[in-house]
């Protein structure tokens, strides 16, 4: 069986599992943060699971993906080991990036997840470069670069729209519009709130879809990647979504209206999709319960693994500053006499 969005039953089950894993993983991460085991910033994407999973499910495994600092979900959806992701959040030696990146800077290059980046808009040119490399090498990969509504006001993103349109690069600009740049609402930041229309000026086909509906997201991104792969042209997809939590764990989220938050919670992407799965008989209630239990175990195991993992040896502090290191003292950069 397949749906209008072209998702087979098996795909739909995988998508549901991925969404539920992200939700439960992030809720667990939130507990770890509150317990003081995760430092720095922790930006949760709870509420945005459909946008993340719908996008990733429409990509080929070797299509490069870049993201913002709210990217635990992208890493997990790409198949990164939940143990390694949680260990990275805890800053342990078994972490996905050896404890160097933390929550904001996950990468799993083997799975073509080219990273989460901490500067708003700063990763978009990297995604464009991955598209450039695909065209240069005549592979048929498509680069998907995800960024938020806030990033669309950065100059470098407009520069990338221009180059992508100018050179017809196989890139999908994916705007995950959660309607707030930290605490500033879209209406306070953007002259035109239909963000995808920015691409009209560069001749890039662009459209907006419901980012709370995983099948709608998947359908839109599948069309976008098809255009990039088969026609070699850039596209832009704006996903309208909502994050349930504050900007990060340190944001008490007092700015956003309670009624607004409640309204969006009623459209919860996981609950909505669960209804679709039951309604279309893709999964039974028992199937779903069993899958949720399995995911719970994975999340608990990831946390236990991370908590029991060793710290990163301080002796490794200066490792990996360079791919071709020039001495033993990368901190000073000097050959000491």
């Amino acid at each position: 069986m397949s749906t209008a969005a072209g998702a087979e039953a098996a795909d739909m089950r995988d998508m549901f599992r991925s969404m539920y894993l992200i939700r439960r993983f992030e809720e667990k991460a939130s507990e770890e943060y509150m317990a003081g085991r995760i430092g720095g910033f922790l930006h949760l994407a709870i509420g945005e699971e459909a946008a993340v999973v719908g996008t990733v499910s429409a990509m080929r495994a070797d299509d490069p993906l870049t993201s913002t600092y709210r990217e635990h979900g992208q890493a997990l959806a790409r198949g990164a080991d939940p143990r390694a992701v949680m260990a990275e959040l805890l800053g342990r030696s078994t972490g996905l990036c050896g404890g160097r990146g933390g929550s904001m800077h996950l990468m799993d290059k083997e799975r073509s997840f080219y990273g989460g980046y901490g500067i708003v808009g700063g990763s978009v040119p990297l995604g464009l470069g991955l598209a450039y490399a695909a065209r240069y090498r005549k592979t048929d990969q498509v680069s998907v670069t995800m960024f938020g509504d806030g990033a669309t006001n950065q100059g470098v993103v407009a520069e990338c729209f221009n180059m992508a349109g100018l050179w017809d690069l196989p890139v999908v600009f994916l705007i995950l519009n959660n309607q707030y740049g930290m605490g500033t609402s879209l209406g306070h930041a953007a002259a035109e709130e239909d963000l995808y229309t920015r691409c009209n000026a560069y001749g890039i086909p662009a459209w907006k879809v419901d980012g709370m509906d995983v099948l709608a997201v998947r359908g839109a991104v599948a069309e976008a990647t098809r255009i990039a792969r088969e026609e070699g042209n850039p596209t832009c997809v704006e996903l309208l979504a909502y994050r349930y939590r504050g900007h990060s764990m340190s944001d008490p989220d007092t700015v956003r209206d309670a009624e607004e938050k409640e309204r969006w919670r009623l459209r919860d992407p996981i609950i909505t999709f669960e209804r679709v799965l039951l309604g279309e008989a893709v999964m039974t209630a028992d199937d779903i319960a069993a899958m949720k239990a399995e995911v719970e175990a994975v999340v608990e195991d990831a946390a236990a693994f991370a908590e029991s993992s060793p710290e990163v040896p301080v002796a490794e502090l200066a490792d990996d500053v360079y791919a071709n290191p020039f001495n033993d003292d990368a901190r000073g950069g000097a050959l000491m006499p």
């Binding site: 996905l96 990036c97 990146g101 800077h105 990468m107 290059k109 990996d320 500053v321």
Partner: peptide, 8 residues
């Protein structure tokens, strides 16, 4: 190179 643990 550093931030991602030498992956890229």
């Amino acid at each position: 190179h550093y931030m991602f643990g030498g992956q890229a």
